[in-house]
Design a protein around this nucleic acid. Structure first.
Lengths: 247, 247
DNA sequence: TGTCAGCATTGACGCAGATCAAAAGCGTCA
DNA sequence: TGACGCTTTTGATCTGCGTCAATGCTGACA
């Protein structure tokens, strides 16, 4: 796969999501979002020596549920879906990983979910053994990882409320508001366009709905002039409608 | 509230669930289950000096969502429900805390859920500031807390699958199997009786169902000779039925 | 420029579980 | 012992979302 060159005209455009570490952590575009924020320049240098950039094309599998955790990843560009599957094929997307997100926070031996690239994707990769040894020597990195895990736990609990108690309309509204906030964090400002690189099926599996219901609800929102559907995302027309409905 | 005396005849009986630390962490009945397992005798001594036993009666609130985290808790006896509420009164029980569980693992400033005693309850209580200072000096405690948080994150992800993708019957089966496993861990052996100290409404709010559906499904299971309903719990008759259905 | 494959959308219909309502247990206390 | 309050159970009915099926859209490639 070819990595397109960097652009600066539009931070949130798909082709620009591919920013890599560029072999120097000091200039990493997602450092301030990632666990690396816990490290000083020296530690960053050390960590950098263990890192390698990994590139995945769309649909590529980063790792599978039950696989041994041989590497951990710091996402620098692109989007991944995190999936738990049932034996009969039912799927639950437990989350979407965005730039700055860390995969392997739990330091367990085997992965508990599958990660697949939703878009072309770049990740800063560490061998698990190296990373664990490094974190062992840097307690404030562990602390930071714990903070990240706590944050994830919060999001997981929010998601339980969504799955257990919200209507289809509320689920969609919450999802769109969540994506808006998360992209804002990545871009550093509120985006006009809410990028939705994942397909309707992924959204359905994230929200505990069917693809038909997702489609119906979003299109109804468009008919009701709450949003407009654009290629690769949506644009809010009536922000307060979403604020009122979202979790 | 009076704390009934200790019994030894039946570990899982309600009245015996009230075992406290007894002012000496070394003899704590839940040490091997709790984060304290990370500590050696010296550290345990130090921590003990900061601990105080807190007793809550049934229905008492340990803390509320949004409250400042002034204390953290190590549950030594009893059961608590952890609740997130929506403005309109809808509730999601995000979990049940059993002896050995730690409340406040995330070290955040405010609680993200409400905790209420389902049964009379004893918890080992630490002032947050003390506990945080202590953990700062004991990296392996942080590591252990991170392990516990990771474990919770796993359970949360399991629960997302349950909420998003399982049928009512599968949800109930999964819940009962989960409670059986958790009580087994606390008791140190597989209990014949699966204690369910929480009411039907709590179970419904945990599983994303209504109380009527919970009641119907459990009673149907009894009619189908899969289990028998007894005071304060259930007893499996057809274990393989549950193993097949559960997540 | 046409064909094809993979989504997404739309419509008709069905059903699992919600809602509404009533009755039955069951522990507490006078 | 009986009355009260709370929880659970059961029944009847409704409905939000799933299921099934067809059609439309878009981008890739010949």
């Amino acid at each position: 796969m070819d990595i397109p060159p960097r652009h600066s005209d539009h931070e949130t455009h798909a082709s620009c999501a591919l920013r890599s570490r560029g072999d120097d952590c000091r200039f990493c575009g997602v450092r301030h979002l990632s666990i690396c924020q816990a490290l000083n320049i020296n530690e960053l240098d050390q960590l950098e020596k263990m890192a390698s950039d990994s590139v995945f094309e769309e649909r590529a599998v980063l790792f599978r549920e039950e696989d041994e955790v041989s590497s951990v990843f710091n996402l620098t560009a692109g989007v991944a879906r995190l999936i738990r599957s049932l034996p009969d094929g039912r799927r639950q997307v437990t989350g979407f990983a965005l730039p700055g997100d860390f995969l392997g926070i739990s330091l367990e031996k085997t992965w508990r979910y599958t990660a697949e690239a939703v878009t072309p994707l770049v990740a800063c990769r560490f061998r698990r053994s190296n990373f664990e040894a490094f974190s062992e020597k840097n307690p404030h990195l562990i602390k930071k990882m714990h903070e990240f895990a706590s944050q994830e736990l919060n999001m997981a609990q929010d998601h339980m409320v969504l799955l257990g108690r919200l209507t289809a309309e509320e689920k969609l509204a919450s999802f769109l508001v969540e994506m808006k906030k998360r992209w804002a964090r990545v871009a550093g400002h509120e985006p006009g366009l809410i990028r939705l690189p994942m397909g309707r099926q992924d959204i359905a599996d994230y929200l505990g709905l069917t693809i038909e219901t997702v489609s119906r609800v979003i299109n109804q929102m468009q008919r009701d002039r709450k949003l407009v559907i654009v290629p690769d995302g949506v644009r809010f027309v009536d922000q307060s409608y979403f604020d009122d409905l979202a979790l």
